[in-house]
Design a protein around this nucleic acid. Sequence first.
DNA 1: GGGTAACTGGAGTCATTTACTCCAGTTACC
DNA 2: GGTAACTGGAGTAAATGACTCCAGTTACCC
Lengths: 227, 227
Amino acid sequence: MTTKTSASDRPLRADAERNREKILTAAASVFAARGLNVVFDDIAAAADVGVATVYRRFPDKDSLVWALFENAVDEIAELARRANDMANSWEGFVWFLEQALGRLCVNKGLREVIMGAPYAEERMTAAKTRIVPAMMALIERAQADGYLRADVVEADIPVLEMMISSLGGGANEVAPDLWRRYLRIMLDGLMNERPAPSVLPSCPSETVVLEAIRASRCGSPDRVVEP
Amino acid sequence: MTTKTSASDRPLRADAERNREKILTAAASVFAARGLNVVFDDIAAAADVGVATVYRRFPDKDSLVWALFENAVDEIAELARRANDMANSWEGFVWFLEQALGRLCVNKGLREVIMGAPYAEERMTAAKTRIVPAMMALIERAQADGYLRADVVEADIPVLEMMISSLGGGANEVAPDLWRRYLRIMLDGLMNERPAPSVLPSCPSETVVLEAIRASRCGSPDRVVEP
DNA sequence: GGGTAACTGGAGTCATTTACTCCAGTTACC
DNA sequence: GGTAACTGGAGTAAATGACTCCAGTTACCC
């Protein structure tokens, strides 16, 4: 198991460390914009270093993904915990979803990691598991207070997040707040008692919606349109 | 423009016609199961003919997609029209969504076509446009009757369909009815007055949900797991 | 039942993409 | 100023995908 754990053996030389940082920064923005299935050459180009330098520092995509997203996942768990500290349990529940979705919608890489992309899987699964207890507490409190319908379970939350963020991700260049409208509708469906509908934000035009749906590309191919 | 419109010039020979049917049947099931970005070799293999035979009959994927999905799209428009004929406008609205989603969830190719996949685009867009008036009537009637919340617009419907069917498609091998649960929640959010929540079907287990989410793969890569 | 035009299969070509390495040259640091 | 660490990017190898070619088979008209 002691197969040369590189990083910890001795500190990197100054220039190497500088490049490592450049790679991480570049990878973060490339992953956020285009998801995890980008090639190392693109990351290298964005970081303004050679491909070999990327491979030298991060032998495979898993290590890069892990270095970048471990914190992001833990941050979501932290959000759930903070939501639990809020005075009103329903407001806490709503606030958590808004915060988590806000992050997911602008970061395709994070979305893929959370939704189970095949990189650094075991470690990511472990990290995600840390979210569960806080989320469960959040739900139970909102249910106990009579705000949240009783038949919702913890497993429903990632589903709702997936459904909304897959739209939000597609829309985020053309209508970055569109997802809030559908979150609102879902929340109206999740409330225990809801005599009248709440007010919906950002009414969409037909064309914006079609663009958002296409861009969210539920599993469809990317055919490039080079002229 | 008269560049040899093949099919109409003269009838195909009996064996050729037979093969054409085999190709259409095979393509339908391959597209349904694996989406539109399958290679012609796979379709040929499923149809038990050579690749050349497929290319001979359908020079590009657009013509194949069009031949297969034009009817499916029109059928959805027909569903909306039939929903309008139902006595109760809310039941018609719900029935339409259930029918349309039922079809979308089991057919990845149809899902991609509806969501704007880049095949036979212009013609498909035209076909989809035929759905709009019927859907608009459906919405307006349900709103006039006080069932459907007033701030919903026609453009919301494809969004809801996209969100739910992207989950339903991912789940359909492991929990084929899971999508109905989230449709129910959405519908509870779409109702105008809804004092108490309606009863939710198919409560999911954590593991089933995670599998469904991963399989729905909101834009994430397919990394094969060959051992 | 035989001649011929229509049709077939699948091996093969060519182009593109992706993952990863090699090494001649540069740079940090004692 | 010597040397070990580090760098860039051209280059290799393998996989995939789109499409064609042609020797052989088959339907159909007489």
